[in-house]
């Protein structure tokens, strides 16, 4: 297998990009995505902290199971989930193997298992929640928690410009390739070819940085004329913007049930 061969394809091939775009911009409604983003974030906080409180694997396993169920009904990206599991398991396996060679025993493995569970639970909780809040609602939730307006704006602005910038980067890469000269010999594992592509990938930032700088000036002026800095320090505007966020009965029920389940797990 040639590991570098796929690299170029990965940049160009539509399927990866489509997958990316679908994760970012596809709209599927799930139970969680209908809930208030602030409630979801509070839920996340609870489940991100909870695992650190326990060392009992049965309890950890129960919490893990519950979070898994919630993740299953969310629209989490399967690929992301897969990579996450692979990453955590791989990391722990490595520790265990090396520990074994350094004179460890099965105790190391058992100990690592609980840590793995903790990390997995926390990661799952974050994926379940944040893949169900679209960036727009996330930014509004942050705003309502008192985050600065620049931060909140930057999230939705990122959401706006990503596809455009990715497209431009690809065009610039092509510009290099359409005038460049790929190495005729690919070398061992195609290293020459990989080096050629990576060099272009780095150099392509030069035009990208300058072109972006040129455009951002217009953006800032436009923000000014659209009253952004006027609104930034104005609480009435903030209230108006966030007025659509309302905590409903379903939100409360979801949170309460989750907390009850957590308490039940702790007590049993």
């Amino acid at each position: 297998m040639n590991p570098f061969k796929g690299m170029l394809d990965k940049i160009n091939v539509e399927s990866v990009e489509l997958e990316l775009m679908r994760t970012a911009y596809g709209s599927t409604t799930t139970l969680l995505s209908k809930l208030d983003p602030r409630i979801l974030m509070v839920w996340y906080l609870i489940f991100a902290f909870a695992p650190w409180f326990f060392f009992d694997s049965a309890k950890l396993l129960s919490i893990f199971a519950f979070v898994t169920v919630i993740t299953a009904i969310s629209k989490a990206n399967k690929l992301v989930l897969f990579l996450l599991c692979l990453g955590i398991i791989g990391q722990m396996a490595c520790y265990a193997i090396v520990a074994y060679f350094l004179g460890g025993n099965m105790a190391a493995l058992a100990a690592l298992l609980t840590l793995t569970l903790k990390l997995a639970t926390i990661s799952l909780a974050s994926i379940a929640v944040f893949s169900n809040i679209d960036p727009e609602r996330f930014s509004d939730a942050l705003l309502s928690f008192g985050a600065p307006a620049q931060l909140a704006f930057s999230i939705s602005y990122g959401y706006r410009v990503i596809p455009v910038m990715v497209e431009e980067y690809k065009d610039i890469m092509l510009s290099f390739r359409l005038r460049g000269h790929a190495p005729s010999k690919k070398g061992f594992l195609s290293w020459r070819y990989a080096y050629y592509l990576l060099k272009i990938a780095v150099l392509a930032f030069y035009p990208l940085i300058l072109n972006t700088a040129k455009r951002i000036r217009t953006t800032i002026e436009a923000l000014e004329t659209k009253g952004f800095s006027y609104a930034m320090n104005n609480n009435d505007v903030k209230r108006l913007k966030l007025s659509y966020l309302k905590i409903k009965a379903a939100d409360i029920i979801f949170l309460l049930v989750s907390i009850l389940i957590l308490i039940a797990i702790i007590l049993i």
């Binding site: 960036p135 727009e136 939705s156 602005y157 959401y159 706006r160 455009v164 455009r215 951002i216 217009t218 953006t219 002026e221 436009a222 923000l223 004329t225 659209k226 009253g227 952004f228 006027y230 609104a231 104005n234 009435d236 505007v237 108006l240 913007k241």
Partner: peptide, 28 residues
């Protein structure tokens, strides 16, 4: 109101309605 030659850079929000309401919202 001003529409720039580089009007794409003037659109700062992800969706059309968001962008169109951005001004009125900021002005409260």
């Amino acid at each position: 109101s001003y529409i720039y030659q580089d009007f794409e850079s003037q659109l700062v929000r992800p969706t059309v309605l968001d962008d169109v309401t951005f001004g009125p919202l900021n002005f409260g």
